[in-house]
């Protein structure tokens, strides 16, 4: 059996080397590229992202990244967004008072965390929902976060004819001590996203990437 193919979308600067190697280690054959067709054709697409929301969206738009994501999802083909790569999947982001339109796969706004210490930086636990495939076997693990902005309210309204996405929450600290609740991960059919960095989360992160890669061939 050949390894599933994954494209890590190259649409800006930052550390992409770790993402490529971590996904390879988890069992996929990985290409780092900004090529439209390759990104469409791969079994899985990983959308990384560091830095400012507006800069990331500009970089993504420059290679029609939101169209790549939209077309893949229309065909039920897996996409995994990481950190700002998750944030840009929401309707909009607000940084330094500047509002930027996102890919709008989900409603909701990415806004500054309300917490005594920001950025939220380090290894945190998450509240894994029942039935999660992403966190299967990883329920008690810690993952590495590094961000100042987050999705603090989940706005998608679903009814009994649709399957509600699985939303994993976490907190910057105990709410009684001024901690803030925000979305740590989403599983929505072929679209998965994590606010933390699985590629930097040691064995726990490798486990999550393996769980994702296992979904690729079945898609």
């Amino acid at each position: 059996m050949t390894a599933p193919s994954v494209v890590v979308l190259d649409y800006g600067s930052g550390n992409l080397r770790s993402a490529v190697r971590a996904v390879e280690r988890a069992g996929a054959s990985v290409t780092l590229t900004s090529d439209f067709q390759e990104a469409l054709d791969a079994d899985g697409l990983l959308v990384p992202g560091v830095g400012a929301y507006a800069a990331c969206m500009a970089g993504l738009r420059a290679l029609k990244g939101e169209r790549i994501i939209g077309r893949r999802l229309a065909g039920g083909r897996p996409v995994l967004g990481i950190c700002v790569g998750m944030q840009i999947l929401f309707a909009r982001g607000v940084e330094h008072g500047v509002e930027t339109e996102g890919c709008d796969e989900w409603p909701g706004v990415v806004e500054r965390l309300q917490s005594p210490i920001v950025p939220h930086m380090g290894w945190n636990t998450v509240e894994v929902p029942e039935g999660s495939r992403a966190f299967a076997g990883l329920e008690d693990e810690r993952f590495y976060f590094v961000h100042s902005y987050g999705v603090r309210s989940w706005d998608l309204v679903t009814n009994d004819r649709t399957t509600a996405p699985l939303v994993t929450w976490t907190e910057t600290g105990p709410v009684t001590e001024g901690g803030d609740r925000f979305v740590a991960a989403v599983e929505n059919g072929p679209l998965w996203a994590t606010q933390f960095h699985p590629e930097k989360s040691g064995d726990a992160g490798a486990g999550l990437l393996r769980n994702w890669i296992q979904t690729l061939k079945a898609a």
Binding site: G122, W123, N124, T125, T172, G173
Partner: peptide
């Protein structure tokens, strides 16, 4: 639920 102290 809380952030771990990092040892570096």
């Amino acid at each position: 639920m809380s952030l771990a102290v990092r040892v570096i």
